Simulated assay, not measured.
Amino acid sequence: MNTKKVWFITGASKGLGLILTKKLLLQGYNVASTSRNKQSLIKNIGVENKNFLPIEMDVTASENVKQAILTTISHFGRIDVLVNNAGYSQIGTLEELSETEVEDNFKVNVFGALNVIRNTSPYLRNQKSGHIFNITSIGGYTGNFAGFGIYCSTKFAIAGFTEALAEDMKSFNVYTTLVYPGYFRTNFLSEGSVKTPNNPIEDYKSAREMEQVHLKDIDGNQPNDPEKGAEVLIALSQLEHPPVHFFMGEDAYHHAKLKLETIENALKAHITLGTSTGF
């Protein structure tokens, strides 16, 4: 009888989700992987079997997500590890992005993750065990990248509700880990995974420069190995007491430390005025 943990992974047809799925299967785990296109899962991973369940799922449709969870429970009997990995990067300044572009990014990155959590939590809560990984970004901790305000705000939102989720689920022996990856050499900055503004405003020169740096210079030259990133996630799932916050990559550590220094300096510089509001 296979007693390995059951993983449920969103956004598994490419990038980190795909690599993680493959590694887990090689190590004997049971994996339900989801994508908007089931055939891409079958093509890149394989057909359904006792250890692998490919599911076509739209994270933005709660009923569709609910059915995918039910299908997984029916196939494997339980879910032990949830990885909220689905998402995409929307480039653009706050002025130039339309209401639709902004809402679409939030629907996938934020509300999509919430749909999965909402429909998985009853099973984790009732079985009194489990581990939820919410994959955010170093852009969910520091947002000072011109032209990436909306994308970063989606990741900040995930960070915010994950901190609360960790407290919500603590009494049920369900762990929650917020993962802040740096730049990993996947197709995340390639066509289909990143969107540029429909109506760019050329006055935003710093945003255009940052956009081109990401699309032309950083893409394909990211410093982190996704194979190693997947191994790190598996190692985190095996810890007796996994962390709530986990920064992944030397570049993630670099940017996190810069943010901490910025906040610390701001606190010190304005402590008298900032603490002058008491009665």
Results as ranks from 00 to 15, higher is better:
residue 181 P to T: 07
residue 211 E to H: 11
residue 215 L to I: 13
residue 55 I to W: 00
residue 156 F to P: 12
residue 230 A to V: 09
residue 45 I to K: 01
residue 220 G to S: 06
residue 237 S to C: 13
residue 176 T to Y: 02
residue 253 Y to P: 04
residue 259 K to Q: 13
residue 173 N to E: 13
residue 124 L to K: 03
residue 47 V to M: 12
residue 92 G to T: 06
residue 183 Y to S: 13
residue 249 G to D: 07
residue 111 F to V: 05
residue 74 S to V: 04
residue 27 Q to M: 12
residue 241 H to Y: 08
residue 46 G to V: 11
residue 145 F to A: 08
residue 274 G to D: 14
residue 242 P to C: 02
residue 247 F to R: 02
residue 214 H to L: 10
residue 269 A to Q: 09
residue 211 E to C: 11
residue 167 E to Q: 11
residue 85 N to Y: 03
residue 246 F to R: 03
residue 121 S to Y: 09
residue 265 N to I: 09
residue 226 P to G: 06
residue 232 V to C: 10
residue 63 E to W: 09
residue 76 F to L: 01
residue 108 V to T: 10
residue 264 E to R: 08
residue 103 E to D: 14
residue 218 I to F: 06
residue 83 V to D: 04
residue 141 Y to K: 08
residue 192 G to S: 11
residue 270 H to I: 09
residue 90 Q to Y: 08
residue 90 Q to K: 04
residue 29 Y to F: 15
residue 73 I to H: 05
residue 61 A to T: 15
residue 190 S to H: 14
residue 155 K to L: 08
residue 278 G to A: 09
residue 84 N to W: 01
residue 202 E to D: 15
residue 197 P to W: 01
residue 241 H to V: 12
residue 123 Y to V: 06
residue 151 Y to S: 05
residue 273 L to P: 01
residue 147 G to Y: 02
residue 229 G to H: 04
residue 143 G to Q: 09
residue 65 V to G: 01
residue 50 K to T: 15
residue 207 A to I: 06
residue 96 E to N: 11
residue 128 K to T: 15
residue 137 S to F: 03
residue 79 I to D: 01
residue 199 N to V: 04
residue 157 A to C: 13
residue 10 T to E: 03
residue 42 I to P: 00
residue 265 N to S: 12
residue 268 K to L: 07
residue 39 Q to G: 09
residue 260 L to W: 08
residue 49 N to G: 14
residue 252 A to K: 02
residue 219 D to N: 13
residue 210 M to E: 09
residue 117 I to R: 05
residue 177 T to V: 08
residue 66 K to I: 09
residue 232 V to L: 14
residue 266 A to F: 03
residue 68 A to S: 15
residue 229 G to C: 08
residue 271 I to G: 02
residue 190 S to C: 11
residue 189 L to C: 07
residue 200 P to M: 02
residue 163 E to V: 07
residue 34 T to C: 05
residue 8 F to Q: 01
residue 198 N to L: 13
residue 153 S to F: 04
residue 211 E to T: 14
residue 164 A to F: 02
residue 72 T to E: 03
residue 215 L to V: 14
residue 67 Q to E: 10
residue 243 P to E: 10
residue 266 A to D: 10
residue 194 V to F: 04
residue 184 F to S: 01
residue 140 G to P: 00
residue 47 V to T: 14
residue 157 A to V: 15
residue 102 V to M: 15
residue 79 I to T: 03
residue 226 P to Q: 03
residue 122 P to T: 14
residue 191 E to H: 05
residue 113 A to F: 03
residue 151 Y to Q: 06
residue 43 K to F: 09
residue 179 V to G: 04
residue 210 M to T: 12
residue 30 N to E: 07
residue 206 S to M: 10
residue 158 I to Q: 07
residue 142 T to Y: 03
residue 139 G to H: 07
residue 11 G to H: 02
residue 147 G to A: 12
residue 179 V to M: 04
residue 74 S to D: 14
residue 173 N to H: 15
residue 112 G to N: 08
